[in-house]
């Protein structure tokens, strides 16, 4: 073999390798960019679900291809804590393509499994009150998750039915359902998620997730890690809101209002919530605050409990 041939082969091979490498990197980067854009766009779709004065809202997102969302949560990031989401999309065959960048969610509380996949995402929101409204809870699940709910109480059934949620089936003697068994009541055999209403907790993956108010939905639809993280994030939001209400007390006192809510509100800010187990004690204190607020004369209430 002449030197010219050898030289051409080596250099040609190198150029070909470089070109293929550059092309594959370009495809990867493009995929990453697209997936990051999609993840960021999804967050915009969550905004219309702010409940305002409504008791709940629901919607769905449909993807063209099978997609996956991966969530993680840190409770103490940037004062309020944050969740992060990554988006994947199936490209060729059964494999998921390059993941998008993590997009941070600071002002939403998404109760979701650590990873969900499917062609459709269903989500609904419920307000969370601790005296005043603290935030909207956003429950997210996919078309690949079917919840078979056994012995649910009337309130739960009417709330879910009112939101017209898909993939949630209330079981009776004639219905058939294959999916995640959610059990209320006394019969808790072979259940992935058990709701103990009297004790105020949900048993999931052998972990007790304590709840108050609409956090019941959060406990059912999210992973234990996400739930506990979001409970702490909600407390951070409560603390920031409490500071606003403390300021508001000063303002409305100028309008001939005598408000005595300050000390108990400060007490609630100092209340430590290390895990969801502390929620019931926190809620007891909130009830005390509610009682004081209700005693205030009309027009001088610091907040109106519409929950």
């Amino acid at each position: 073999m002449s030197f010219n041939w050898l030289f051409s082969l080596i250099v040609g091979g190198f150029i070909l390798f470089f070109a293929l490498y550059a092309a594959s990197q370009f495809v990867k980067t493009s995929q990453k960019t697209t997936n990051t854009e999609i993840a960021a766009s999804i967050l915009s779709l969550f905004d219309p679900l702010e409940t305002g004065v409504a008791s709940g809202k629901s919607s769905q997102i449909d993807f063209v291809k099978q997609s996956q969302l991966v969530f993680d949560c840190s409770p103490n990031q940037n004062i309020f804590g944050e969740q992060r989401v990554r988006f994947f999309e199936k490209t060729f065959g059964d494999a998921y393509g390059e993941a998008g960048e993590r997009i941070s969610i600071k002002d939403k509380y998404v109760f979701v499994e650590d990873s969900i996949q499917g062609k459709s995402l269903y989500y609904f929101s419920k307000p969370y009150f601790a005296g005043f409204k603290v935030a909207d809870l956003l429950m997210l699940y996919s078309d690949e998750q079917t919840y078979c709910v056994y012995d649910a109480n009337e309130d739960f059934m009417s709330e879910v039915s009112g939101l017209n949620l898909k993939q949630i089936i209330f079981m009776n003697a004639t219905t058939r359902c294959e999916g995640i068994r959610v059990c209320f009541g006394s019969n808790q055999k072979n259940c992935a998620i058990s709701v103990f209403e009297n004790e105020g907790y949900v048993l999931k993956e052998n972990k007790k997730l304590y709840y108050t108010d609409n956090l019941l939905f959060g406990a059912i639809f999210s992973s234990p890690q996400t739930y506990e993280c979001n409970v702490q994030r909600l407390k951070h939001r409560f603390d920031a809101l409490a500071q606003i209400y403390l300021g508001k007390i000063e303002v409305i006192q100028r309008s001939s209002c005598s408000v005595t809510l300050g000390p108990i509100l400060l007490g609630l800010v100092d209340f430590q919530i290390d895990s969801s187990k502390d929620l019931s004690a926190f809620q007891e204190k909130v009830k005390e605050m509610d009682a004081i607020n209700k005693r205030a004369k009309d027009g001088c209430k610091v907040y109106y409990d519409v929950g």
Partner: peptide, 23 residues
Amino acid sequence: DSPELSCASSKSNCIDGDKLIVL
């Protein structure tokens, strides 16, 4: 309609000026 700005009396698309001044 966010808890930081929403009116105390349940009105939609309403900002509470007394909260706003604190912010």
